[in-house]
């Protein structure tokens, strides 16, 4: 720490104040936690890039991880939101950062498994181009209909959709988003055809349209529709997922009924490739501890995530498994 005195006046101020006002608020009691985990000990703030806008629906899970990372490592973790380009801008920022363990960030399955096929210029074509540190969790898409529609069960809905191709409207938060891809996958597997209407505006407009009855059905994440389900405006019919979803244990799993029609949004923490072994091992260890921690589990439960802290090769395998699925979906468009 003495070295700081050699700095020019502003560099000292800069270092001190970054420590003092690093944005995450999670810095209480950091000294106590310092040095607990692993051999590598960071000596300056770590940047955690979130490839979405501040306050967006995906921002909180990244911030939760970053704040716990700060507690575990005993340094500040500064969240930097770099939105846009279907999360590719932020992901590019992580992948191309210095592999010094001081920059990591959030990414997801579409950015990592689908976007490289669409855009060969992206610097993350295979899982070797980055370090897949840990999977934070899945959040499955729930299919719901407006309460005034006649369909009470998934079977009735699918039968109606089959009888009237392109006749039932399905609202999504945007083409290419997970709710849209999930429905495409269902269409491929089941042979039905929905009129998928991409709304934007963070999913709020899709929800408004479904609640007001402007459109018959909607696919979105449960926490955002929960209020309307409880108020009786929307009726959930099924989940685009193949494992039990604790928030809605009684709903049919579309991913079970139709082989492979499971498409949750999956979030990972990744870092640049070729990390120094010592710091990589520390990050791997710490990030697993975080996802398994009671605090993170509680956050996941409240926000509709299903956690599964797979890491490195296992995580790389999951990302690679998504590639053919996305190719199939893209192929069906042509």
């Amino acid at each position: 720490m003495n070295k700081h005195h050699l700095h020019g006046a502003f560099a000292v101020a800069s270092a001190l104040a970054l420590v003092a006002c690093g944005s995450d608020g999670g810095s209480g009691g950091t000294d106590a936690a310092a040095g607990e985990a692993g051999a590598w000990q960071p000596n300056r703030p770590i940047t955690y890039i979130i490839p979405y806008g501040t306050g967006g629906s995906t921002d909180p899970i990244g911030r939760q991880f970053a704040s716990q990372l700060s507690e575990e490592l005993g340094v500040d973790v500064v969240v930097e939101n770099r939105e846009g380009g279907a999360a590719t801008i932020g992901t590019t920022g992580i992948v191309t950062a210095q592999p010094d363990c001081y920059t990591l960030g959030l990414s997801n399955h579409t950015a990592l498994a689908n976007q490289p096929a669409l855009n060969p210029d992206l610097p993350f074509q295979t899982t070797d181009d980055y370090t897949p540190l840990v999977k934070l969790g899945d959040i499955p898409v729930v299919l719901a209909v407006n309460a005034d529609t006649p369909w009470q069960t998934l079977e009735e809905f699918l039968a109606a959709a089959e009888a009237d191709p392109n006749g039932i409207g399905y609202a999504t938060s945007g083409a290419g988003g997970t709710p849209d891809t999930a429905a495409k996958l269902l269409e491929i597997r089941s042979g039905i055809e929905l009129n998928r209407v991409p709304f934007s505006g963070g999913g709020g407009e899709a929800l408004t349209a479904a609640v007001s009855g402007e459109i018959e059905s909607i696919g979105t994440f449960y926490p955002s529709m929960q209020g309307f389900v409880e108020s009786g405006d929307l009726r959930p019919l099924g989940i685009f997922y193949d494992q039990e979803y604790p928030l809605l244990p009684d709903l049919p799993l579309i991913g079970e009924q139709f082989e492979g029609a499971s498409m949750p949004a999956a979030y990972y923490t990744i870092a640049p490739a070729n990390l120094d072994e010592e710091c990589r091992d520390t990050l791997v260890e710490v990030s697993q501890q975080i996802v398994e921690s009671e605090e993170f589990q509680q956050f996941a439960e409240e926000n509709g995530y299903v956690t599964d802290p797979i890491q490195l090769d296992e995580l790389a395998a999951e990302i690679d498994d998504y590639r053919p699925v996305f190719e199939e979906i893209e192929g069906s468009d042509a």
């Binding site: 939105e83 846009g84 380009g85 279907a86 590719t88 801008i89 590019t92 210029d121 945007g174 083409a175 290419g176 988003g177 991409p198 709304f199 934007s200």
Partner: peptide, 21 residues
């Protein structure tokens, strides 16, 4: 300019990632 909102197509970005926004 940028990612078109409804279908997510990139337009008029001329290869500049940042322009997507």
């Amino acid at each position: 300019v940028g990612v078109e909102q409804v279908t997510g197509i990139f337009r008029y970005t001329f290869g500049l990632q940042d322009l997507a926004l």
